[in-house]
Design a protein around this nucleic acid. Structure first.
Lengths: 96, 96
DNA sequence: TGTTCATATCAAAATACATTCATGTCAATA
DNA sequence: TATTGACATGAATGTATTTTGATATGAACA
């Protein structure tokens, strides 16, 4: 996480249709950028832009894998519970 | 709740410094509008605007009480757990 | 090394959201 | 019933965020 963020600004990062969908997919499993496409149906550059926001907030990590890049939920953002969730530090979100 | 909202738009409602502070205060106890003032330090009309957004999202309820209006966390937004939290329907937020 | 595939970046345009200010409503009470 | 206190509303403005489109980078491979 580049800099300490307030809880409201962390929530702002989740408060977007696309980014929430990305996180939901990543909670299932790590994915390459091109794998998001099908469900998200957005432009490549927009997807990349949203991934950057998630990366800079420390919610996801990326790792080059040949020509592609593999994205995962950041370890610090993972929840201890078995339910799907995101740990923002200031609060924990649990999805149904 | 006036209309069904997506999870991201519900999160958007929490993703604001002022509204989050309002909810945090209401998680402690119900309050009259004038009681928020001290900690929030915002104009009366702005506070009122934010309360309206929370009301229309179904997160808080209001009830006239003489000259004042009493605000509370909406029953449906309450969490069953003892910890401080908000139930958005699509997900539950738990604060530390 | 030149080309292609996969992804990232940048700046501009579009859209959405927060804030302000003026005014309106509603209940209490003089 | 006129006034005041407490809050709500609406329109205009300011500010932030999202989206687009053009271009750049980096790895693989011919």
């Amino acid at each position: 996480m580049r800099q300490k963020k307030s809880c409201s600004s962390l929530l702002k990062i989740l408060a977007d249709k696309t980014r929430l969908a990305i996180l939901e997919q990543l909670m299932e499993q790590s994915k390459h950028v091109s794998d998001f496409g099908a469900e998200l149906q957005i432009e490549q550059s927009l997807l990349s832009h949203h991934l950057k926001i998630l990366r800079e907030a420390g919610l996801v990590t990326s790792k080059r894998d040949g020509k592609s890049v593999l994205y995962s939920i950041a370890p610090e953002a993972k929840t201890s519970t078995s339910k799907k969730g995101v740990n923002l530090g200031c609060c924990i979100l649990s999805f149904n």
